[in-house]
Design a protein around this nucleic acid. Structure first.
Lengths: 343, 343
DNA sequence: GTGAAAGCGCTAACAC
DNA sequence: GTGTTAGCGCTTTCAC
């Protein structure tokens, strides 16, 4: 049973998987016709459609999207970049993004840049190399170098969770400055006069914190106490931060935290020390994670509609990938201060 | 400046991006030599290496990994499937998986199956269509149909967070039965006699719960009270569950929760009702999320090393993708009952 | 409505 | 060490 000595060498052997070619042969049509039966069924006759469907069923054919993407210059892949997946803040966005893309036949590729942003360039190269149909940047500060590469790659980009004056391309976000200001005014209106901030060490949180402090000053309040903790924020750092505040400024009567987890930490530490919330100290979080409204007392926080951000980002990218022009490239999704028991 | 009427039609025009071809021409070598200079630099001469690097720098060339993948039948893409990204349990695994893969030049593609598992088949088709070099299944119960497709696709598969007697391929997990048993014994040893379980409605949690109940019976304890809540579990459902327990079995003295979030809910409700933890009721969680040890009192829970699971899954897949044989295909990562303040 | 030819950008296989 | 050739599996372009 030696191999046929006459046949020319098969210089490459395929992966062995069923290809469109096999399906077409089985259905008795040309490959391109089988392709049309799958992708644009309205272009082929009833009979062909049936035979191709039948052949697919019998062979278990699964189209090779890589090959299709190479031929059509559309990968149906969208990249999302987050600082870290463990920070629960962006989860809602990622989840809705994944879902909205999957509905339309796109898949999500996940990249973590780290808060430090050192791996960012390597990550960007890995992403661009896959020629995704779009890139969603989430809570990340990109370098000038990164911006240039992104622009050069001509891939649709959606920046999220922020409102920058000079977006790379498209943007779905909200104003961190407005958030800081709104919370300061809210606490002032509630009669709080000695404000503090506990903030993760990241760029956006810092902007909220600065706007918060500035607004407090404008309202005639004494200087806002500021405690900065490392990003990503944790319950532990919230506890530590309140402990520090109690040492350095025991008379503060309200704390604005840069995440709900941090707020939970502050509440936990307060409880452990017998400090009553909201009577002695008011707490405001940021994010409105699922647990916020179920805490005891329920947490006053800033609600960001992460699901809407993800959904809109998906729409932006799919529209562009499918050749539809996006008229409104910047969307301010807004935010809401949700008043609950801790204030 | 009309186009040359003699030249044959360029039947397709490329994406316009810089290709390996352009780099090779600029460096004065053949494309394959440029390819080698990039991928296996030890195979080319110093001079070529330099000229190619230079040409890349000047053109801003980014290799098209899709094309490379098609040619080499290696996509350098790994798919991960989770029920939902919002359930914090698997985050640690996903994070370490993403990181470990990125280090080795692989990218992660994320798919959400939903706890219902209805979208699972469509998701599987979308994944297989991209010919990933591996698939990591995380906390998901796949259908017989799904198993068949996975087997048929001949893609390395790592199942995680469980120990099944009949793995599809490779596996990194632990025994949920052992966990349930260990926690029951632990609580019994602590002197607790009236046990309850609050469990998310998913297959693995159910196995822990059943083993817990069986072990309690074996220890001569009265029947374990069981409250089942919908998956994914939330703080809210934990609160509701304790409320229900207090109605139906006010004398329980220990609750084993199927997630730390659920445990936090139980603790919150207990606090709201003035029930003291651990004096009146002991609480045990599952997962050992970051916040567990910082709660007040600190939460006794079951620690699963999600980072190790992700790291090992990455190693499994990269080994297989690079042709190394994996000798030990099933790894029991174990677990630990971490005793803290709530018991 | 269907098909033939060409090629997307890269690498495996085989020379030299 | 370097190059030639032939494809990977699909879709675009053009023709019938």
């Amino acid at each position: 049973m030696a191999t046929d000595p006459v046949s020319p060498r098969r210089s490459r052997r395929g992966s062995g998987a069923v290809t469109l070619h096999d399906v077409a042969k089985l259905a008795g049509v040309a490959p391109i016709t089988a392709s049309r039966a799958i992708n644009t069924p309205e272009q082929v006759s009833e009979g062909v459609r049936k035979r191709v469907a039948d052949a697919i069923g019998r062979t278990g054919y699964v189209p090779n999207i890589l090959a299709g993407g190479l031929a059509s210059a559309r990968s149906r892949l969208v990249a999302a970049v987050v600082p870290t997946i463990s920070g629960p803040v962006f989860l809602e966005t990622i989840q809705s993004l994944t879902g909205a893309l999957a509905e339309r036949g796109y898949q999500l590729m996940l990249g973590q840049s780290g808060y430090a942003g050192d791996r960012e360039d390597a990550l960007l190269a890995a992403i661009i190399g896959r020629r995704p149909d779009g890139i969603v940047l989430t809570g990340i500060m990109h370098s000038a170098e990164g911006r240039k590469r992104l622009l050069g790659a001509a891939i649709p980009v959606v920046e999220t969770w922020d409102l920058t004056p000079t977006p790379i391309d498209m943007l779905v976000g909200f104003s961190h400055v407005e958030v800081g200001r709104a919370v300061a005014q809210f606490l002032h209106a509630k009669g709080r006069r000695r404000l503090a901030v506990v903030s993760g060490n990241d760029e956006r949180a810092k902007r909220r914190q600065d706007a918060f402090a500035a607004a407090a000053r404008a309202l005639g309040l004494q200087d806002v106490r500021i405690v900065v903790v490392p990003a990503p924020t944790t319950l532990r750092s919230g506890r530590d931060a309140l402990a520090e505040l109690m040492r350095t400024a025991p008379n503060v009567d309200a704390v604005f935290c840069s995440s709900d987890l941090l707020a939970l930490g502050v509440m936990t530490e307060a409880q452990a020390r017998g400090i009553r919330t909201p009577q002695q100290i008011a707490v405001v979080g940021f994010g409105d994670l699922e647990f916020a409204e179920s805490l005891h007392p329920a947490l006053t926080t800033v609600r960001i509609d992460g699901t809407a951000i993800g959904r809109q980002a998906a729409r932006f990218i799919v529209d562009r990938a499918e050749g539809r022009e996006v008229e409104q490239r910047v969307i301010d999704i807004g935010f809401a201060v949700v008043e609950r028991g801790t204030t």
